[in-house]
Design a binder for these strands. Structure first.
Length: 106
DNA sequence: CTTATGACTTTCA
DNA sequence: CTGAAAGCCATAA
């Protein structure tokens, strides 16, 4: 099992209505300092993966969406989260999530 | 093998 | 409190 597969496996385990941070995913994998790789894994997965993996539930430590990818715009992530019954706070063209309420705790 | 880069995090001024 | 800088580790070239 390579790094990506672990990331995808964990991301798929995030229950509906919850979110997780990059650092959290990295820590669960076993490399607490590989948060950037988690983000990279998200970027690397293209095509159908986006539909089967809840990538929108993975956010940065501030509970903010920090995608720079033009094909995965924040508004789409917000839309998917809204489907998950997650409350989104819009602020300065950025979307924030209340981690105290929605953070996933395995 | 060495160098550069990134959907991050933490620390120091 | 705010902002800048370094650290981290897996991939790609």
């Amino acid at each position: 099992m390579n790094f990506y597969d672990k990331v995808y496996y964990l991301v798929k385990k995030i229950p509906r209505g919850k979110v997780a941070t990059y650092g959290q995913i990295a820590a669960l994998i076993g490399s607490p300092r590989s948060a950037r790789m988690v983000g990279w894994a998200m970027h690397a997965m293209d095509g159908g993966r986006l539909e089967e993996i809840p990538w929108q539930r993975v956010i940065n430590r501030e509970g903010r969406i920090s995608t720079t990818c033009v094909v995965h715009p924040p508004n789409q992530q917000a839309r998917l989260l809204k489907k998950d019954s997650v409350k989104i706070t819009k602020k300065d063209n950025n979307f924030f999530i209340d981690l105290n309420k929605y953070l996933w705790q395995p």
